[in-house]
């Protein structure tokens, strides 16, 4: 690990000002950042410790939504009684990710900002535009079994690895931030991530020193919800494909359809055209297949990951069958 200056921030405002300096980083749970620092993939000059800030509350908003402090751990969020009852998709996605030890440390804000696990990003001798802009991408012609089939560019096909963020996208989450100059803003999660384009090293719209202080969810969706994750091991493995699905059935017709996808996109993926195909219609395999075709019409495999295209279709079909059949985790909004 390269040397760095360590400071424990006394307030969110102070943290933002200190982290606005070039090559400064916030650190909270540290489970991803320290992993990368040990490999010298991340080499910050300064670490601003935000872990003691008062940002760990989960509270209902005035409109019956939920405000989740940036420092709420993945474990606490998954186990929160209100989340389990009213946003079960979020609990399920969190519990499908990482290990018990990591969930006790990893935070809500940090989870959104975790970096890809693309093997070429993690291998300093490989070319990687995300790690070293302009160097090229060895994943494109390499062992790209885990890489993206949607949202990629000629510069990068790295997958965003989060399960939590996939559920958050389906649930219309917004990210609340505090800028280094003291300004606050709310960013819909759909506008938060950047596609890789020509410079995949820039992954979000956050400015230097801009601190995530909370994630805000709108009122409960109230329908059937599931998070279906397909992976190489039964536990503690990143998704090959995952589907977050929420559907309400009214008189046999699908309403408020929400679908988001992990393991296949360069960002937590959502395509509202797919939801509109299903909206207001009776569930059927024929319709589910039509939705899958629309989702995947621009999907592109790169050799080793070609299998993700049919696997995504089948996982989406299974998730839709599950949410439109009688299912245990009905929410009571």
């Amino acid at each position: 690990m390269r040397p760095f200056e360590y400071t424990r921030a006394a307030s969110p405002g102070e943290a933002g000002q200190m982290a606005a300096a070039p090559d400064a980083r916030f650190i909270a749970g540290g489970t991803n950042l320290l992993d990368l620092m040990k490999l010298q993939i991340e080499t910050p000059d300064a670490l601003i410790d935000i872990s003691r800030l008062d940002l760990a509350a989960i509270e209902r908003t005035d409109d019956r939504g939920l405000r989740i402090g940036a420092l709420v751990t993945n474990a606490d969020l998954a186990a929160d009684p209100d989340v389990r009852r009213h946003w079960p998709l979020l609990s399920r996605a969190l519990l499908a990710g990482a290990s018990g030890q990591l969930r006790n440390k990893a935070t809500t804000g940090g989870n959104l900002l975790q970096r890809t696990r693309c093997g070429y990003f993690y291998e300093p001798s490989a070319r990687c535009n995300k790690r070293m802009p302009g160097s090229g991408c060895d994943a494109m012609e390499g062992i790209n079994r885990m890489n993206a089939i949607l949202g990629g560019s000629s510069a990068c096909i790295a997958v965003h690895p989060s399960d939590m963020a996939v559920a958050m996208r389906a649930l219309d989450a917004e990210v609340e931030t505090l800028s280094a100059d003291g300004a606050t803003r709310r960013i819909p999660l759909g506008d938060f991530y950047r596609l890789p384009g020509e410079d995949p090293s820039v992954e979000t719209v956050l400015a230097p020193g801009e601190l995530i202080v909370a994630v805000v969810l709108p009122p409960p969706h109230g329908g059937w919800q599931t998070y279906r994750k397909v992976r190489d091991r039964a536990s503690y493995a990143f998704a090959l494909v995952s589907v977050a699905a929420a559907v309400r059935l009214e008189d046999g017709l699908m309403r408020d359809v929400r679908l988001a996808f992990g393991g296949i996109g360069t960002m937590p993926w959502r395509d509202q055209r797919v939801e509109l195909v299903l909206e207001g219609k009776a569930p059927s395999d024929k319709l589910f297949d039509e939705a899958a075709r629309l989702l995947l019409q621009e999907a592109r495999g790169h050799g080793h990951n070609d299998f993700k295209i049919p696997l995504t279709r089948r996982t989406l079909m299974a998730a839709l069958r599950e949410t439109t059949a009688s299912f245990e985790e009905e929410t009571s909004a």
Binding site: Y6, R8, I27, G30, T31, L34, D35, D49, N104, K105
Partner: peptide, 13 residues
């Protein structure tokens, strides 16, 4: 009281 990976956290924190 909570289980964590001691390798992925800084002592100073």
């Amino acid at each position: 009281g909570r289980r964590i990976n001691a390798c992925l956290t800084l002592a100073v924190m």
